[in-house]
Amino acid sequence: MDITRFKSKGFFIPGLISLVLLILLATLPLSLGGYTVVLVTTILMYAILTVSWVLFSGPSGYMSLASAAFFGVGIYIGALLLPNTGQVLPLLVVVVLGGLASSIVALGVGALTLRLRGIYFAIFTFGLVVLILEVLNWWEHTVSHIRGRFVMVVDNETIFYVMLAIFVATMLTFFFLRRSKFGLALQSIGQNEEAAAHSGVNVTMVKVLTFALSAFFVGAAGVVWATRLTYIDPYIAFNFFLSFLPVLMAIFGGIGQIYGPVVGAAIFAYLQETLQTEFPEVYMLTFGIVLVVVILYLPNGIVGLIPKLWRRISGGQHANT
């Protein structure tokens, strides 16, 4: 037996499906174009945020509400280094820099606060979003006197492909981390932190590094998002909703399976976009009802339905509990 729980069986087929999906996605601008590309870019952005959240909070059990902070840091790096007045650095370099900046923030915050447990950690990470927002506000009011920034315009296809690349990188990291020795350590921390520490796991290091790793992808996505927004100010960059949405999307999709968060983010983002445009008055209401139903009746999320349906189709012989 090996630590690689997901090894051997069920490796080839999901790999093949992922590859086909990836090719379909990559050729999307050629086949459909226009609005679909914009919509899928949005979905990819949410998927990156959600998978990054699950990467750390899923196994470790530390509920982070810092997504908006990391995303906002990425957006600001994007706005500073890709102003509409003229590009300072190539887009991809800025994407990496945005990711690194978010990672550094996560390293600092993580080292300070990952000793907090449960709700205290959640509240602190949310406080981080508010803190950065207010500091930026103060800075722009009293020091720099620049209010709002215009960001370089990038065409939708480029935005799409860069977002897709970040998404693939996030998924690969998530996939390999789960199977690795490091992932096992992270999981043991979520199950019993004290026992993990006394079994030789450097719990602080594992937590802080994973937190920083998850922040990287969020920051990178933020840079790309800045070029999509084209105008930003602190309130646009540090949007509180983006701290909660990844959590909701993950729960919605189900965090037990690797594809759960992606499915959750995709359906959620699609619903949000369409409901918002089709039924702007009842959008939040419908959204809320769908969420409540999923949480009440599908404790394992949308993807938790698949084994259930499969059991029903196959008559229960393959019941796998």
Partner: peptide, 14 residues
Amino acid sequence: KIFANMPVMQNVLL
């Protein structure tokens, strides 16, 4: 203090 949701083998492997 065990890792209750992890298989016995992985508890020891850790």
